[in-house]
Design a protein around this nucleic acid. Structure first.
Lengths: 195, 195
DNA sequence: TGGTTTGATGTCACCTGGTGCCGTCAACGG
DNA sequence: CCGTTGACGGCACCAGGTGACATCAAACCA
């Protein structure tokens, strides 16, 4: 018999998710989480760098899936097309874990520090996308610009999906992409002020 | 004669900027900052909500300038054009405070927590832009999308400006806008995957 | 078989960010 | 002349986060 129950990390994630939902992020201490998981505060910090990170461990997975999809896009695809493929790949994963994603989202939406961390994760995702685009031969600043835009599209589609029902995330992403194209195609001349 | 030296807040900002630059953010305690400013830790936290915020008090100003510029754009301007005007307005302010902006930027670039806070400020700016666009009658999700894109453009142009010399921020912004237009106009069809 | 090493956890002490509460005292206002 | 206000100091306290050392099952090895 093992000296400790298995999957300590998973138990911590589970306990944190429950407690953040029950009492809110601020009113939950790390000691609380560890206790519910049958562990100690010190062990919590061996698995997660801080109290927020426990909610964001899945992000790495998304970033990898994204990069893989961008890399797999045909050579003929424009940067924006390749990035759109990545968005669809990530959307598929998120929709798979639908319920979990929504619970997580509700917790994050209720707390400013968590939103801050989410932004950092989003920026990291943008960084991964930039790398994937560069690997396709896309130069800066187009690579950065495309990556940032893609992340923005995802954010907006995801926000819609989180708060509404019955619409697939992939559909919302495609809609947002279309609207982005329309918004930028005829406006934003680079020649000078609008007025 | 006054009981205390004037401009406590400004002295704290100055002391923090110096110390963060000298020793780094992590190796500077709030007590250190307060001491250099001739104040106490408790007073620091009366002026700033946390140790990071002391570097970001100017952001409010930028957001206001941005909103004003968007509101002042002619009715005939597209959302993207209006937002581009806002970008130019903000760029002008940043370039005015050029040296300070660069010092601040170097400190932020060296620390992850500060980058996180910067992202939050950027998101807040996006929120202000969305409001300004809605006030112009732009509906969601085009408003959100345009705002996020504008912020992304600013981020990229600002990053270029921070690390290079001799190119005006406004010029870089105009270039980025042009490239964005090119990147989105012909790619990113909303009809389905690229491959 | 028996000894050794490894790795995940516990325990403890400690620092610092951040807050609540109360005290102090110049300036201000009537 | 007196009460109020506002900006600051001082103090105690909690919680996040870290370093150092102890523990002990399991895995590995002679």
């Amino acid at each position: 018999m093992s000296r400790w129950e298995p999957n300590a990390r998973g138990r911590l994630e589970q306990a944190a998710l429950e407690l953040y939902a029950e009492r809110g992020f601020d009113d939950t201490t790390v000691a609380d989480i560890a206790e519910r998981a049958g562990l100690t505060k010190r062990t919590f910090f061996r698995h997660f760098t801080d109290k927020r990170e426990v909610l964001f461990s899945g992000q790495t997975l998304l970033a990898e899936a994204y990069a893989a999809a961008v890399a797999a896009a045909p050579a003929s695809a424009t940067p924006m097309d390749a990035v759109a493929d990545g968005l669809r790949a990530v959307a598929a994963i998120v929709e798979d874990r639908g319920e979990l994603a929504r619970r997580r989202q509700a917790i994050v939406a209720a707390n400013r520090e968590l939103q801050e961390r989410e932004l950092l994760k989003r920026a990291a995702l943008a960084g991964v996308i930039v790398d994937a685009l560069r690997a396709r031969g896309v130069a800066d600043p187009v690579a950065s610009l495309t990556a940032e835009t893609a992340v923005a599209v995802f954010k907006i589609a995801y926000a819609q999906w989180s708060t509404t029902e019955n619409t697939a995330l992939t559909t919302l992403i495609d809609q947002a992409l279309g609207q982005l194209s329309a918004a930028t195609a005829n406006g934003a001349s680079a020649s000078g002020p609008a007025g």
